[in-house]
Nucleic acid binder design. Structure first.
Lengths: 251, 251
DNA sequence: CGGGCGCTCGCTGTATACAATGATCTGCAG
DNA sequence: CTGCAGATCATTGTATACAGCGAGCGCCCG
């Protein structure tokens, strides 16, 4: 069994889950496409049992959908679904921000978030940002949102935010755009930075209501941008954020 | 294999999941207690494989927690967790109510909810409500909240509300109280009815902001009541709503 | 030539067998 | 008597074998 010692001593099930999730999020499998166990087995390099576990987990996670007659397919989302997911995430993050403010986080706690923002600032400083810069932004932004959730100090909230972010198109990048959308990206990101900074300030000043309102407004703006992008270019330009990350960070 | 034809032709995995969830929610397994596969196998009456699937699903559902060294245990929640879960649910239901209002549901859509409320009215009409009446209320109330989520017409919202309600102590009954809390129950339920009616009216009148605010306030009230109950009687009186339902509806 | 029916094959769901890891208990030494 | 070390044993994680069901295809009949 221990034929391949190359990987860390991580369970087969988890390895399968990571492999398959990667496969889905990087577009190896198209939404609506059926995923056969055999296929998954040779992709993950383990037996059917752990693959099966991974499939169940991914289904609960929201990436897969059970087919009534058996098996799983990659879940596909309508534009409406994506917009709603963004709203859900924004609402939950608003709650996280409010709790953070109400429960009084220390300035030290918000330090990592400010660091995130500073790094993003550098990325989007140039008039026209590069593809690599945008990819880096996506990763940093995901980290920022994760930190915000942590700040709520509430496991249920963290859990729900995570769940809401799991939807491939509602990723914490706020909105997702393809390479072709890069020209407009800079302005949007600058605005996002502004929002995030306001949220941190509000949290530090214990202004819960304000922190929440800004976070929700932020999500609504993201939704509007996405809607506009789809109107302008059609839905094919929608790309999971992970694709961007993957493209610039070949693992 | 088909030795027991008594049940409907439902998959073994699902049967195991239902059986185990029932076991947990009805208190057959205490929070923090380890659940061995063998035990689960003989409880569900199926083989280890479907039991294993069910355990994974229940973990993702939030009822179980994986033990690092292997196996699962029933997740236990602090009072803080429970209160936070109620807040999460309230926030999500607030979103659901707002979306329902904004998207313009017809009066016909809210009809089943009004029926729910009417039935609850009858239950809580007497000065002192019985245990059976309270159990019936819990079930009706769960239905009311499910209907509200449906009204959002948003799969992501429905999903998140469902997830938030899965936490055993944050059940849609809003707050959970043991039999001993019955004397105070009536007043609280009357107030809840009032809230729910306002929400429906707001939705029908397209007042999204108002609908949302009421729903959130409703959750905050529930949290406060729970906090008071715990202060007065101690945490042992916290009981999953399912126990009440189970007690009066012996399946 | 087209449609319906039956068959076959592949796939999934389930059961069981095997291996490895962690826990517990006992015996021995300090 | 207590603490540590070794071994046994239970229990999980993984692999494989088996069975049933559905989808797809071909054949036969109209």
């Amino acid at each position: 069994m221990a034929e391949r010692e190359n990987e860390r001593s991580i369970s087969q099930t988890v390895r399968a889950q990571l492999t398959l999730r990667d496969l889905i999020l990087t577009g190896g499998l198209r939404p609506g496409e059926r995923i056969s166990e055999l296929q998954a087995v040779e992709a993950a390099g383990v037996s059917r049992t752990p693959v099966r576990m991974a499939l169940v987990r991914l289904e609960e996670e929201g990436l897969l959908e059970a087919i009534p007659s058996g098996g799983f397919m990659v879940k596909s989302f309508s534009e409406r679904d994506v917009l709603d997911s963004i709203e859900v995430r924004g609402t939950m993050e608003g709650l996280a921000a409010r709790l953070a403010a109400e429960r009084g986080v220390s300035v030290r706690d918000t330090e990592p978030m400010r660091e995130c923002l500073a790094q993003i600032d550098e990325l989007i400083a140039p008039q026209e940002i590069s593809f690599d810069a945008f990819s880096a932004y996506v990763a940093l932004n995901a980290r920022f949102h994760a930190l915000l959730a942590e700040l709520s100090r509430s496991p249920p909230v963290i859990r729900q935010v995570d769940r809401a972010s799991a939807l491939p198109f509602a990723s914490p990048s706020g909105f997702v755009m393809a390479q072709s959308a890069l020209p407009e990206a800079r302005h949007i990101l600058v605005v996002a930075q502004e929002h995030h900074r306001i949220v941190i300030d509000a949290i530090e000043n214990r202004e819960g209501a304000r922190a929440e309102a800004v976070m929700r407004e932020h999500a609504r703006l993201a939704a509007r941008n996405l809607r506009l992008a789809v109107k302008a270019r059609g839905p094919m330009d929608l790309v999971p954020a992970a694709v961007l990350i993957k493209a610039s960070n070949p693992s």
